[in-house]
């Protein structure tokens, strides 16, 4: 399926969707949003490209192979939650720092954001892996990494 309309629209939608996914990720800090929905939203433009162009184009858009994204995300999320153990607190305890901002406000930065970033990467990795493997001949057959 090669549709010029879809291809052109994809070109404009792609950056918007990526930006929106980052927005959702950061918004999850205090309001509805977060890593899971952000990661899903980040996988949407990749899926769109796979539909509009083909799977290889979509695959090359990702900075890393899905399985590596998954590993990286898991490592981030697990690292954050295990990090609390080293600070003598139970698993998954959040730590926060308050940064004074130039405008006079205060920015609360916490490890939950990092945890969410990990989830974002995991979801992105899993969803793109599923999309790619459904699009290829034999789903469930994990692609060996050639990069």
């Amino acid at each position: 399926m090669k549709s010029l309309i879809l291809q052109t629209a994809t070109r404009y939608l792609f950056p918007l969707l990526v930006l929106y996914s980052v927005f959702l990720l950061v918004r999850g800090h205090h309001e509805p949003g977060g890593g899971f929905i952000g990661g899903l939203m980040a996988a949407a433009p990749i899926a769109l490209c796979a539909l509009a162009y083909d799977v290889d184009v979509a695959r090359n858009l990702l900075p890393l192979r899905p399985i590596r994204l998954l590993a990286l995300g898991l490592a981030t999320a697990a690292g954050v939650s295990i990090g609390a153990l080293f600070m003598g607190r139970p698993l998954l305890t959040g730590s926060w720092v308050e940064l004074p901002m130039p405008g006079g406000g205060v920015l609360d930065l916490g490890t939950p954001l990092l945890f969410d970033l990990g989830i974002y990467l995991v979801v992105l990795g899993v969803v793109t892996q599923i999309i790619f493997s459904l699009a290829t001949k034999s789903p469930l057959h994990w692609e060996r990494d050639e990069s």
Partner: peptide, 25 residues
């Protein structure tokens, strides 16, 4: 805080992640 009750979960998790990083070998 009780480390022994979480280690049986943390250790397999870390193992799974590390072995994912060793994907190629």
């Amino acid at each position: 805080m009780n480390l022994v009750t979480v280690l049986p979960i943390v250790i397999p998790l870390v193992t799974a992640i590390v072995s994912l990083f060793a994907w190629r070998s």
